[in-house]
Simulated assay, not measured.
Amino acid sequence: MFSIGEFSKTCQVSVKTLHYYDKIGLLKPVKVDALTGYRYYSQPQMEEMLLIQRLKRYGFSLEEIRGMLACGEKRELFSKLLQQKEKLLQQKQETEQVLRELSAHLLDFERTGDIMGYQKGYEIQVVEAPERNVIASRQNMSVDEFGKYYEKLYQRVPEEKVTPNGMVGAVYYDKEFNRECSDIELVVGIREREKADRTIEKGLCARTLHRGAYSTLSEAYAALVTWIGENGYRCSGAPYEFYLRTQFDGLSPEDWETEIFFPIEKK
């Protein structure tokens, strides 16, 4: 057996941390001396401690690690590790995208001397938006659930014998935006008016084109709202967006294009 000091030194973990792991039931000493209160650890616990440290580096919380160690099922442990790998890869992609955005922002700032210069690059147009026949799915959803509901919409295409026209988008009905739960309608444009769930009506809109990742769409929305207020208009309906160029075209996020429409009327 190892004293807590020996165990601490070998595994390069503080005694304070070992006391905490004991307290939360993550790693209890194999023996506690009844007289002195000294804690002792075994050789197998050294391996367990090393695994805990590795799982922490992978980004698992202590609560998650405790559950994984208690499980012991190899298949479930492998599945959790695989899921964590996918999560870390996603985080890596998001970090790389943020770095690209930051680099572009720095270049623009250096060139113009305006830290908000990127916000002024949107071209706002007043257009008569055409009517669009769509099949639709509207519910309270998170942004991360878009894929699930789009999949259900596209399952309807062969079942209902409709012809997509390439227009895919979303309509936002809530006055406030909540990424985790908002009243959103996902739409897929189709050619057959008689088979559509509804028609997005034609009408006067302020329109702009956003180039870049969806994480920065708020910049385009802010530019539109500012322009509408400064030019004698007001919003008269739910804003909507169409995804013109996406990852499904084999493009990196900075090359994605999203067309945004705000229905408007004169004040």
Results as ranks from 00 to 15, higher is better:
F2E: 04
S3M: 11
S3T: 15
I4L: 06
I4T: 05
K16S: 05
T17V: 09
T17G: 07
T17H: 04
K23E: 11
I24A: 14
L26T: 08
V30N: 15
V30S: 15
K31Q: 15
V32P: 03
V32T: 13
A34K: 13
Y38F: 08
Y38H: 10
R39A: 01
Q43S: 14
E48K: 12
M49Q: 01
M49N: 01
L50R: 12
L55Y: 05
G59K: 04
F60S: 05
E63Y: 14
E64M: 08
I65T: 08
R66V: 07
R66I: 12
G67F: 11
E73Q: 10
F78R: 14
S79K: 15
K80Q: 04
L82R: 15
Q83R: 10
K85Y: 09
L89Q: 13
Q91Y: 08
Q91A: 11
K92G: 04
Q93M: 14
T95Y: 14
Q97K: 07
R100Y: 05
A104K: 07
G113S: 11
Q119E: 13
K120T: 07
K120D: 13
Y122S: 02
I124V: 14
Q125N: 11
V127D: 11
A129G: 01
P130E: 06
R138F: 07
N140M: 13
M141F: 07
M141L: 11
Y149A: 01
K152Y: 01
R156A: 00
E159K: 06
T163K: 02
V168W: 07
V171D: 04
V171C: 11
Y172S: 06
D174I: 09
K175Q: 15
K175D: 15
F177W: 14
F177S: 09
F177K: 10
R179I: 10
D183R: 06
L186P: 00
V188L: 00
V188D: 02
E192H: 00
E192Y: 01
E194W: 05
A196E: 04
R198C: 03
T199I: 08
K202D: 14
A206S: 05
H210K: 06
R211W: 13
G212W: 01
W227Q: 11
W227R: 09
G229Y: 13
G229A: 11
Y233N: 06
G237V: 02
A238S: 11
Q247P: 04
Q247A: 10
F248E: 03
F248I: 02
I260M: 03
F262K: 02
F262C: 03
P263H: 04
I264M: 09
K266E: 10
K267G: 10
